[in-house]
Measured scan of single mutants.
Amino acid sequence: NDEAKKEAEKLWKNNKSEDEIKERLERAGISPDEAEQWLQELR
């Protein structure tokens, strides 16, 4: 999970869309709710 979150953070810094980041997190096995929460922390 931490690995996926690091990846999400990297994508965020590269200005990827939130949808793309969420999709990537969900593919890594993170629930949509958790993915949404993680994005809010990044904002």
Rank of each mutant, 00 (worst) to 15 (best):
Glu26Pro: 00
Gln37Phe: 06
Ala4Phe: 09
Ser17Asn: 08
Glu23Met: 12
Glu7Gly: 04
Trp12Asn: 00
Leu11His: 04
Trp38His: 02
Trp38Pro: 00
Trp38Val: 05
Asp19Val: 10
Ala28Phe: 15
Trp38Asp: 00
Glu20Phe: 12
Glu36Lys: 05
Asn15Cys: 15
Gln40Ile: 10
Gly29Cys: 03
Lys10Phe: 13
Leu42Glu: 01
Lys16Arg: 11
Asn14Met: 14
Lys5Glu: 02
Glu26Cys: 15
Asp2Asn: 09
Asn15Glu: 04
Arg43Leu: 06
Ala8Trp: 04
Leu25Val: 02
Gly29Arg: 01
Asp33Met: 11
Ala35Leu: 09
Asp2Thr: 10
Arg24Val: 15
Lys10Gly: 05
Asn14Gly: 08
Leu25Pro: 00
Gln37Pro: 00
Leu42Lys: 05
Glu3Ile: 11
Glu23Gln: 12
Asn15Pro: 02
Gln37Lys: 13
Arg43Ala: 04
Gln40Asp: 07
Ala28Thr: 04
Asn14Cys: 15
Glu34Lys: 09
Gly29Trp: 02
Lys5Thr: 03
Gln40Pro: 01
Glu26Gly: 09
Glu26Ala: 14
Arg27Val: 07
Lys10His: 10
Glu20Gly: 03
Glu41Phe: 14
Arg27Tyr: 09
Glu20Trp: 07
Glu26Arg: 14
Glu23Pro: 00
Glu34Gln: 14
Leu11Lys: 02
Arg27Ala: 13
Lys22Tyr: 06
Ala8Thr: 03
Asn15Ala: 07
Glu18Trp: 14
Glu7Val: 09
Ala8His: 01
Arg27His: 09
Asn1Gly: 11
Leu11Tyr: 06
Arg24Pro: 03
Ala28Lys: 05
Gln37Ala: 12
Glu41Arg: 14
Glu26Val: 14
Lys22Phe: 07
Ala35Phe: 06
Asn14Ser: 12
Pro32Asn: 08
Arg24Asp: 05
Gln40Lys: 11
Arg27Gly: 06
Glu41Asn: 11
Glu3Asp: 11
Glu18Leu: 11
Leu39Trp: 04
Ala4Asp: 03
Leu42Met: 09
Asp19Glu: 13
Asn1Cys: 15
Lys13Tyr: 11
Asp19His: 09
Ala35His: 03
Trp38Arg: 01
Arg43Glu: 03
Trp12Gln: 00
Asp33Trp: 13
Gln37Leu: 12
Asn15Ser: 07
Glu34Met: 14
Glu18Pro: 08
Gln37Asp: 05
Ala35Pro: 00
Ser17Ala: 05
Trp38Ile: 14
Leu11Arg: 01
Ala4Gln: 06
Ile21Pro: 00
Leu39Tyr: 04
Glu41Cys: 15
Trp38Thr: 02
Asp19Phe: 11
Glu18Phe: 12
Gly29Asn: 03
Glu7Met: 15
Ser31Arg: 06
Asp2Trp: 14
Glu3Ala: 12
Lys22Val: 04
Ala8Met: 10
Lys10Ile: 12
Glu36Ile: 06
Lys16His: 14
Gln37Met: 11
Glu36Trp: 10
Gly29Asp: 03
Leu25Ile: 02
Glu18Ser: 07
Glu41Trp: 15
Leu11Ile: 04
Ala28Pro: 02
Lys13Leu: 09
Gln37Asn: 07
Glu20Gln: 06
Lys6Asp: 05
Glu3Gln: 10
Ala4Tyr: 09
Glu23Asp: 09
Arg43Gly: 02
Glu3Phe: 11
Glu18Ala: 10
Asn15Phe: 10
Lys6Met: 09
Ile21His: 01
Lys5Ser: 02
Trp38Cys: 00
Glu3His: 10
Lys6Glu: 06
Lys22Gln: 03
Asp2Leu: 13
Glu3Met: 11
Glu20Arg: 03
Gln40Asn: 11
Lys5Leu: 08
Gln40Trp: 14
Gln37Val: 08
Lys6Asn: 06
Lys10Pro: 01
Asp33Gln: 12
Leu42Pro: 01
Glu20Leu: 06
Asp19Pro: 05
Glu9Ala: 12
Ile30Glu: 02
Asp19Met: 10
Lys22Met: 11
Ser31Trp: 03
Gln37Ile: 09
Asn15Met: 06
Ser17Arg: 04
Glu34Thr: 12
Leu11Ala: 05
Ile21Gly: 00
Ala35Ile: 15
Lys16Pro: 04
Ala35Cys: 12
Ser31Thr: 10
Trp12Val: 00
Ile21Met: 01
Trp38Leu: 07
Ile30Gly: 01
Lys10Met: 13
Glu20Ser: 04
Leu25Gln: 00
Glu9Arg: 14
Glu34Ile: 14
Trp12Met: 03
Lys16Gln: 06
Leu42Cys: 06
Trp12Glu: 00
Glu3Lys: 10
Trp38Tyr: 07
Glu23Lys: 10
Asn1Thr: 13
Ser17His: 04
Leu11Asp: 05
Lys6Val: 06
Glu3Trp: 15
